[in-house]
Amino acid sequence: MDVSFRKIDIDQYEEDVLLDNELYEADPRDPTQVLNDTKQKGAAVHSSLSKGDIQGALELVLSDAPYGPNVEEAKNLNLQTLVTILNSTKATEIPGVVKSLSQDSQDTLMKYLYKGMGLPGWGDVSGSVLLGWHEKLTEVAGTGCIVRAMTDRRVV
């Protein structure tokens, strides 16, 4: 079946187009500040990790996660920081860590897991790590968490 019609921009003749940015509240910080914040968080996460505080590191990286347009660099940086945590967590520790996260953090973590799986070649994350976290997170936060990751327009 020819599906190219789906790519037609049907809004081009519409005077009153509903834009993406009307559907969520923009990050009040400006892009350079977001990048700086993310860099600082990265450093804090590394110090938490060296102390073995995985939950603290996760809460940190998942709070104020960069979203929206013009912050691609910060988004990638935050993903890298998160991936470091995911990779350095033992499989047996995952359920406990996931359970102790706040609901906001659980939802954000799910967004990152899907972002990771969406990268070409899955970036430098191994599939089994992402799927392992996904399984444990779904057991705790349910399908509702997945729905929220898909629904939220504040794409990380």
Binding site: Q103, G142, G144, C145, V147
Partner: peptide
């Protein structure tokens, strides 16, 4: 609650 401006969100673990 518009009077006291209290807003409660309940996030479900299930489908919408």
């Amino acid at each position: 609650y518009p009077g006291s401006q209290a807003i409660y969100h309940i996030r479900m673990t299930t489908l919408p």
